[in-house]
């Protein structure tokens, strides 16, 4: 399956890495893709490292294993670079997107010889500036859509608007903020 994109998410319990993977699957489904979005469950607790995965393709994928050679990696928490081999198996023609206010090249020494593209996004900063709280998964989701190109950007924005209108039907005041976060994150991801 040559057109398949495989993504691995690294986060900490409670940051929404699993939710981001499921939202990405959801958005890709809406634009007509075959999707898989699944977390790797262990003894979960707030703050413990967790992994989630996406497979996105034009035909159904029958593989039900973890992803060892991802095309893209998303790191929702910068501190994981010290404890988890986040670029393990990452294809050099792919990319890694890290939630950090640092410049991408500043982080390369932490990536164990990884030679491919590195992007950073100040997900926590953007979220705090617009929503007043750190929800890093929404900016990370937008950055991943931008970098992977798995969904056309406008189609993604339109889909997320609909999805938030449904999800936040009981508190519509948070929709605009989340949409702003998505747009700004797509602009500010750097690499």
């Amino acid at each position: 399956m040559n057109n398949m994109i495989e993504i691995r998410w690294h986060g900490r319990g409670g940051q929404g890495a699993k939710t981001a993977a499921l939202l990405l699957a959801d958005a890709a489904f809406v634009v007509g893709k075959y999707v898989q979005g699944f977390p790797e469950y262990g003894p979960e607790r707030m703050g413990a490292p967790i992994t989630a995965y996406n497979r996105i393709s034009d035909e159904r994928c029958s593989v039900h294993s973890n992803i060892y050679y991802p095309d893209y990696v998303a790191v929702v928490d910068e501190s994981l670079l010290e404890s988890v081999d986040v670029s393990k198996g990452l294809k050099e023609e792919g990319a890694i997107v890290i939630n950090s206010c640092k410049e991408p090249e500043e982080l390369r020494p932490m990536l164990k010889g990884y030679k491919g593209r590195i992007y950073t996004i100040d997900a926590a900063g953007i979220s705090k500036a617009i929503l007043g709280k750190s929800f890093p998964n929404t900016p990370m989701l937008a950055a991943m859509v931008k970098i992977t190109g798995v969904i056309e950007e406008q189609a993604f924005i339109d889909q997320m608007q609909k999805s938030y209108e449904h999800k936040f039907a009981h508190k519509p005041q948070v929709i605009d903020g989340n949409m702003q976060v998505l747009r700004r994150s797509m602009e500010e991801v750097k690499g």
Binding site: A25, F38, Y41, R60, H64
Partner: peptide
């Protein structure tokens, strides 16, 4: 069905 592998995986 297989726990987590299919029970918790979103698919078409």
């Amino acid at each position: 069905q297989d726990g987590f592998i299919t029970s918790h995986a979103i698919e078409n």
